[in-house]
Design a binder for these strands. Structure first.
Length: 424
DNA sequence: TCTGGGGTCCTAGGACCC
DNA sequence: TCTGGGGTCCTAGGACCC
């Protein structure tokens, strides 16, 4: 969960100790509008207004489209030549659906088979992460040119600290938000929505207020009027489980949540979550905008075309397992990390998942080492049931550069220490 | 007819040490 | 000999997010 800090909250200290004419803390949340679909429409403008879903498995379910692309410019492919949802067979979920497709009840994370029954005529496009990453890089670079304090929150979202940016205070941030929107649109023809608020929590919610292509400016005084009527689920960090529990306790809106006292919330949700919920309902969040962060783990996983059995499909499973380990090793090396916790994840045909991991004495990025220890993890699981997913993870990361230094200095010292221990 | 892939953070119990 | 407590690391599971 996205947690604010509670004791010694910087924001609270600032309120008490900052001079009267200090700039107001102004945090923006920027969210690209229907990002994947919008990028696809840049390529295939002929699909504008039609029900389109993006998703599917790795299989070349779009052979027709692939063939067509070889010969024709994307924008000249007739709509009739695009593959339809009804012609798809196999696993996979929808990553994004256009508004026209959502009219049919089709939405993100829905299985493609189910979606095909709801809207068989919808056009199905394969995900093209290379294209989305390219546009992601482009819009983030544009923002960085204008406002350097940006936190990356994934492929289509960022937080930006407007507080000290020239013009960031004008109209509560609206002027700067408009400038960024225009710069992104001029360069990419993509639209985004921006919320500007005293902190990340409120900014994130505010960016949804005027979607698409909208701006929402909010201040602390807007808490009761604009946030308290919203469903608790709108708080970033309250998901389906917490929401259901809140509903059962008779709490449906953020305003109702705010009426409960901290102690009561802590009794029902635990120290940390209870205190955090209380703060969130009162619009309190002092998390800073974080410019850079190191990854904690790197993983690869895959859902099989069909469920596999550990014994009957041993060869196939073994090949996939080895490939996943090699991919993780490559990812580590490419990104410059080593890790010492090797883990696996299995999902059975009934969708139950289990994980196993073990920690090595030293860090590694070696595919064979990862494969060996992932294999040891796998041996600790009974494999009667068929499997639908296998994953490999490396955690407890440090950068390869740090590890290099560590081996030069720390490791020899430890060896000396061990030798001394043995002598005594 | 089910339900992707890549992450983060939290909890909780046990081992082990001081 | 008994009792207790704190800190850290390891492992497994789960909620949540994009």
């Amino acid at each position: 969960m996205a947690r604010g800090c509670r004791p010694g909250c910087i924001e609270n200290q600032d309120l008490m100790s900052t001079p009267l004419n200090a700039p107001l803390r102004r945090i923006a949340h920027l969210d690209m509008d229907a990002f994947y679909a919008s990028v696809e429409l840049l390529r295939y403008p002929q699909l504008k207004g039609l029900p389109v879903v993006i998703g599917g498995g790795r299989r070349a379910q779009n052979d027709d489209l692939q063939a067509a692309q070889d010969e024709r410019a994307p924008h000249s492919i007739p709509v009739a030549d695009f593959p339809r949802l009804k012609d798809y067979s196999g696993r996979g979920v929808i990553t994004t659906a256009t508004y026209a497709a959502r009219q049919f009840g089709v939405g993100s994370a829905m299985g493609l088979m189910k979606a095909a029954r709801l809207c068989p005529q919808a056009i199905l496009l394969p995900v093209d992460f290379a294209a989305y990453r390219h546009y992601s890089r482009t819009f983030k670079d544009i923002i960085l040119d204008i406002a350097p304090l940006m936190e990356d929150r994934g492929i289509d979202e960022v937080y930006i600290d407007f507080t000290q940016v020239p013009g960031g205070q004008r109209e509560g941030g609206r002027v700067l938000a408009r400038l960024i929107q225009k710069a992104i649109y001029d360069a990419t023809a993509l639209t985004c929505s921006v919320g500007v608020a005293p902190n990340k929590l409120l900014a994130k919610m505010a960016s949804e207020f005027n979607k698409p292509n909208g701006i929402a400016i909010v201040f602390e005084d807007d808490l009761e009027g604009r946030f308290w009527p919203l469903a608790c689920r709108k708080i970033n960090g309250i998901g389906p489980k917490a929401d259901e529990k809140l509903q059962q306790l008779g709490i449906h809106t953020i305003g109702e949540l705010a009426q409960k006292d901290v102690g009561w919330l802590i009794d029902h949700f635990g120290q940390k979550t209870g205190a955090w919920m209380f703060d969130a309902a009162h619009g309190i969040d002092c998390r800073p905008v974080v410019l850079e962060s190191e990854p904690v783990s790197i993983s690869r996983e895959t859902t099989f075309e069909r469920d596999l059995h550990a014994v009957r499909d041993r060869a196939e499973l073994g090949a996939i397992f080895t490939r996943l380990c090699e991919q993780v090793a490559q990812d580590l090396q490419r990104k410059g990390y080593v890790g010492k916790t090797i883990g696996i994840k299995l999902r059975f045909d009934d969708f139950k998942s289990v994980t196993r991991d073990l920690t090595l004495p030293d860090h590694t990025f070696d595919a064979a080492t990862i494969r060996h220890h992932a294999g040891l993890c796998l041996k600790r699981i009974a494999l009667q049931q068929k499997l639908r997913l296998l994953g490999v993870r490396v955690g407890s990361l440090m950068t390869a550069a740090e590890h290099h230094l560590w081996r030069q200095h720390e490791a020899p010292l430890q060896q000396v220490q061990t030798a001394m221990d043995l002598e005594t």
